[in-house]
């Protein structure tokens, strides 16, 4: 038996020199008395989270399968997502569970997404827990953000969208930019609807700290989501500052991290869809390197405007589905600078 051990270890050392040898490096979530409060108090909304994360993970594997007829594939995925909205799971899937092929291609991307989903769960739990007074919520949020940023290999930057996506990623200059949106318009709509629903829940939690009123408010948001937002989705990826203005002011680092995560989903889909990108893993990892937290990022967190400071989270106003919004303003500004340059 022991004769084989050196051979085995030599083989592992040899394999570890392979270019795509990668460690898993998973870290457990931060413990707190608030853990799972959102699951216990807002179960229906939690179930919608399972659909959002299923869709975000599953589409990567669908794109990797390179469907010939993207129009049909787009429609099928959209219909399946709507079916899941009516038949959600009871527990939240890891991205490896729903997008296993993508996990084999780019583990670090999946790890970054799951790690950020954990932050998202932490903050939902903190905002739900009625044992934490409103004045102390930010202390617990900051604790969760500190823990999140303690894994810089997979933690998205808390700097604003303008800094991370426009400057570091150079989104509009990338050859793959918009390739997913052009080919998968219906699925893009679903994701943009989820990017309204996810932040607006935080805003309702902040405005309604009383648990009973919060539960009513969140249920109303869920109804609004199904009845108004899915049939008439936002016409762009909404930024946190537009949908949860008060929460973005309270926790700007978290707001930016979620914007960067949402854009990262889009970047992955663009890269997977684009025929111009041959080495998809390399390109995705290049983007992660640009989007993860860098020294000094936390000092920039508050550098963004709040265009709808008095937004009522229980309505779906025209400004969400019409006009350019913050995305239009930022991209117009970037284009103007490039033309001047």
């Amino acid at each position: 038996m022991w004769r084989f051990l050196p051979i085995l270890l030599t083989a592992l050392i040899f394999l570890s020199s392979c270019q795509n040898w990668e460690s898993k490096n998973e870290v457990f979530h931060l413990r707190g008395a608030y853990n799972n409060e959102f699951y216990k108090r807002h179960f229906k909304d939690f179930q919608l989270t399972t659909v959002a994360h299923w869709a975000h993970g599953r589409i990567s594997d669908v794109l990797l399968s390179q469907p010939v007829d993207t129009v049909q594939a787009d429609r099928e995925f959209y219909d399946k997502s709507k079916w899941f909205l009516k038949h959600p799971a009871k527990t939240e899937p890891h991205q490896t569970y729903v997008g296993p092929e993508f996990a084999r291609l780019a583990w670090r991307a999946v790890h970054a997404i799951d790690w950020t989903h954990q932050l998202h769960e932490q903050l939902y739990d903190i905002m739900t827990d009625s044992r934490i007074p409103s004045s102390e919520k930010i202390t617990w949020i900051n604790r969760a953000v500190d823990y999140y940023l303690s894994e810089p290999e997979v933690a998205f930057s808390p700097a604003p969208f303008e800094e991370v996506i426009m400057k570091r990623v150079g989104l509009m200059q990338q050859p793959w930019f918009k390739s997913f949106r052009k080919n998968w318009p219906k699925t893009t709509n679903i994701f943009w609807a989820f990017h309204w629903w996810h932040p607006v829940v935080y805003e309702a939690q902040l405005l309604y700290p009383d648990l009973n009123r919060q539960q009513e408010a969140v249920l109303k948001i869920d109804e609004l989501f199904i009845e108004k937002v899915i049939p008439n989705p936002p016409n762009r990826m909404l930024l946190s500052r537009e949908v949860m203005p008060r929460f973005s002011q309270l926790a700007p680092e978290a707001a930016n991290i979620f914007d960067n995560l949402h854009m990262f989903h889009g970047i992955i889909y663009d890269i997977l869809q684009s025929p111009d990108v041959k080495d998809k893993r390399r390109e995705i990892y290049r983007m992660i390197d640009r989007m993860t937290v860098k020294p000094g990022d936390r000092t920039m967190a508050k550098n963004f405007p709040t265009p709808n400071p008095d937004l009522d989270p229980l309505v779906y106003p025209e400004v969400m589905w019409k006009g350019g919004g913050e995305m239009g303003r930022i991209m117009g500004h970037s284009m103007h600078h490039r033309m001047k340059g």
């Binding site: 592992l12 394999l15 795509n20 040898w21 460690s23 084999r104």
Partner: peptide, 13 residues
């Protein structure tokens, strides 16, 4: 102890 995550070309050990 896990040595690596599974990739397209390598199993996990």
């Amino acid at each position: 102890y896990n040595f690596n995550v599974e990739t397209q070309s390598l199993p996990a050990f």
